[in-house]
Amino acid sequence: MNIWKFVSGMSVLAMSSLPAFAETPQQLLAGYVAEAAQATPGFSPSAERGRQFYLQRHAVTDRQQGCFSCHTDNPLAPGQHVTTSKSIEPLAPVAGSERFTRAAKSEKWFRRNCKEVIGRECSAGEKADLLHFLLAEAAR
């Protein structure tokens, strides 16, 4: 049994009432999965699709060609802002990380970065795939 399915079942109710108060990356993932399933019944997140999305060279802009431009090829590694050189904490939600622990913050960065890097907002399915991939990497 996939752990995310268990978590998903546990947290969908909470997500539907208080989406801004998701506490864990697993709960956030469950919320994105539930949202994606509304558009695509039976949707199941894929770490492989997430990996491809993360590494894809979208090349909408020269400077920020993909997630990796700032977050590096390895989401477990610290990154660096490609314009300002400011260091960036690893994107993957490893133990002790604050990554993906606040729905509003997660949404803010998806909104900004998706528009910049792929030229449009990301779908719930894309967010679910990406987060599933990041969680899988963090669990390695």
Binding site: T61, R63, T83, A104, K108, R111, R112, N113, K115, E116
Partner: peptide
């Protein structure tokens, strides 16, 4: 914001 999206609520 200087070529980047820094939008806030």
């Amino acid at each position: 914001h200087f070529g980047e999206d820094a939008s806030l609520d």
